[in-house]
């Protein structure tokens, strides 16, 4: 049992994360200040929500590279519409609209994937171009800095603030609640609902799932609509936190998010992955990239370090399984005593 626990990717990533925190904290105590942790939480929020969406797609045996396009599309379009109608209300309406747009775009993915059974990578590559091209061409390609009031104020929506020893006030942004909520919902969904289990079943063996009578079309429609919803919300958070709507932003991050998710133990081949692992993967990447400066490594090395983490983090289990395969399990009879 203990051995099984240690062979899990989640454990490996979790331990690495703790060790990393201890090392960074030992080198530079600033690491342990609330301000730094609030920053980390803020950086991890959008990536984390994206990653949960990626997790669900990966578990089902698919891969999605269009979620960043959905995010920027939903966020930018919402901003344009709200500006256009002169909406004065608060942020919930923005999330609702952006999420709804995300669902619609997700349904377009689902249409191609479920109706024509096309490979998910190819479909989402196509829809990524489609969504982004449509956004930039039809809706707009300029950065909007003149935001609707509700959205403009969002970056100041802290859960609480603390004033540290140097008199600087830092706050934990409320967006992190979205990440917590999404994580909980995803965990309950994947673990305790038949829908969630059907996602694992689909990723484990599509044929078996079909024969067992799972409604695969319905499951896939749900998956891509849900991922669309998450992307829409995450996009809105991104826009709010950055206090601008840039239609040329976000797209390009998809591979990084997928990498973090896989680092957390989700299998590219489908059927495996957990919410906790995904969160750990995202945290590891976030801590790593945000803390290099704290330990005196110039930030130009940031990508080198992340690339190395991804390679090492995925190579360790790969080598382990390679070794195991060389030894079959024959129960060899001991020699009879002469």
């Amino acid at each position: 049992m203990l051995k099984k626990l240690f062979s899990r990717q989640e454990t490996l990533v979790g331990v690495t994360l703790i060790v990393l925190c201890l090392v960074i904290g030992a080198i530079n105590p600033v690491f342990w200040t609330p301000g730094n942790w609030f920053d980390l939480a803020r950086s991890a929020t959008v990536t984390g929500i994206f990653a949960i969406g990626v997790l669900i797609v990966l578990v089902s045996g698919g891969i999605d590279v269009s979620f960043t396009a959905i995010a920027v599309f939903s966020m930018y379009t919402t901003t344009v519409i709200m500006n256009q109608i002169g909406f004065e209300g608060g942020m919930p309406a923005f999330f609702a609209m952006s999420g709804a747009i995300g669902i619609v775009l997700g349904l377009i993915n689902a249409f191609f994937i479920a109706r024509f059974r096309l490979p998910t990578l190819i479909v989402t590559l196509g829809t990524q171009s489609l969504f982004r091209g449509f956004l930039l061409f039809v809706i707009g390609s300029k950065i909007i800095r003149d935001l609707p009031p509700g959205m403009a104020q969002y970056s100041g929506a802290f859960l609480f603030t603390v004033t540290d020893a140097r008199g600087i006030t830092v706050g934990l942004h409320s967006a992190v609640l979205f990440l917590v909520a999404v994580a909980i919902v995803a965990q309950l969904l994947l673990r305790y609902t038949m829908l969630g289990r059907s996602i694992y079943a689909l990723g484990g063996s599509r044929e078996a799932a079909e024969r067992a009578g799972f409604n695969i079309v319905q499951t896939q429609v749900f998956i891509y609509a849900f991922v669309g919803l998450l992307a829409g919300i995450a996009g809105m958070i991104y826009g709010g936190l950055n206090r601008q709507a840039n239609s040329q932003d976000i797209v390009g991050q998809e591979l990084d998010v997928i990498a973090a998710t896989v680092l957390g133990g989700a299998s590219i081949a489908g059927g495996r992955g957990s919410v906790i692992g995904t969160l750990l993967g995202v945290m590891l990447v976030t801590v790593m990239s945000n803390s290099l400066i704290l330990v005196g490594i110039p930030s130009i090395w940031q990508r080198v370090v992340i690339g190395a983490i991804i390679i090492i983090g995925t190579a360790v289990p790969a080598i382990r399984s390679l070794r195991a395969a060389r030894r079959a399990n024959v129960d060899i009879e001991p020699l009879p005593a002469e």
């Binding site: 080198v304 995925t314 790969a318």
Partner: peptide, 27 residues
């Protein structure tokens, strides 16, 4: 090497090296 000898999934291996090579170029 990563794909053939370490047995990494090609998507992951080249995703990792993509970040690594870009990082080296930045550095």
């Amino acid at each position: 090497l990563l794909v053939a000898y370490v047995n990494l999934t090609p998507i992951l291996a080249t995703l990792g090296t993509m970040t690594l090579y870009t990082g080296l170029t930045v550095a």
